[in-house]
């Protein structure tokens, strides 16, 4: 099939960007979205043009490196998958596909479709851990953890940190990302000693980075490729309130 790729081009953070449209022939439904972009880039390089820069790595939906807006939706039209897992069978022959980077104040554009998400790391730095040095641990089975709690913690821990939630949110809020980490540790006994400080510090840093607040629209949950639940945000609000009162 043939598609037209209308894609955001921007040389660097300082320059102004704009859309360019490139036709691409010979696209098969079994190609992944990025294999389609590889093929387009191969053509561009051969023609002596700059290829489209995009972030990607594992191409199996787990590293969280990739993520673009496709036809107005984070990671494209299929629910519960990352961009790298999207295949061209999800598009029509002759379709114009609009591809944009994540857009959020806290994710400045580096080039074309690549954005800088180090604000996520900085939020993690102030509390996204349990303070334990190597070698201090007791036997792994010393603390039994109810299966339901371990499973719920795992549901939250499945976040891949891609930033789709931020890019989707009308407020550019990072609440789903931050609450997933807060929830993982709040649900586990290991997370209790630092419970209050963790949530306060991470929320403060989140605000400082320029992420917006949550207005319970729920778009983040819909677009999250790992289907992280909005319940985590409710839990974080409760944790935050509790930490602020006590």
């Amino acid at each position: 099939m043939k598609v037209h790729i209308k894609v955001w081009r921007q040389t660097n953070a300082q320059s102004e960007g704009n859309f360019s449209t490139y036709p691409l022939d010979g696209v098969s439904g079994d190609m992944s979205f990025f294999e389609m972009l590889d093929s387009l880039n191969d053509n561009l390089v051969t023609e002596g043009k700059d290829p489209i820069a995009f972030d990607h790595d594992c191409r199996e939906g787990i590293c969280g490196t990739c993520g673009v807006f496709i036809n107005g939706r984070a990671h494209g039209p299929i629910r519960g998958v990352t961009t790298c897992q999207l295949h061209m069978r999800s598009f029509q022959d002759g379709e114009t596909i609009v591809v944009e980077p994540w857009r959020a104040k806290a994710f400045p554009i580096i080039r074309d479709l690549i954005v800088n998400r180090q604000s996520f790391d900085r939020v993690m730095e102030v509390g996204g851990y349990i303070s334990i040095n190597t070698g201090n641990a007791q036997d792994a089975n010393a603390i039994p953890i109810a299966k339901e709690d371990a499973d719920a913690a795992m549901d939250a821990a499945a976040c891949i940190g891609c930033g789709a939630c931020v890019a989707t949110c009308k407020n550019s809020s990072a609440m789903l990302f931050v609450s997933a980490k807060v929830s993982q540790f709040a649900l586990l006994p290991q997370g209790q000693p630092e419970r209050s400080n963790r949530v306060k510090n991470m929320v403060d840093q989140m605000d400082e980075e320029g992420f917006g607040n949550c207005t319970n629209t729920g778009a983040c949950e819909v677009e999250c490729p790992k289907e992280i639940s909005l319940v985590n945000i409710a839990r974080m609000n409760r944790e935050f309130l509790k930490a602020s009162i006590i």
Partner: peptide, 23 residues
């Protein structure tokens, strides 16, 4: 190898568990 599992559990890694709460 055993110390690795201890370390990882202490870090809050949500390994799969049995209903009795053990790994």
């Amino acid at each position: 190898s055993n110390a690795i599992i201890d370390q990882c559990v202490a870090q809050g890694i949500p390994f799969a568990r049995e209903y009795g709460g053990l790994l």
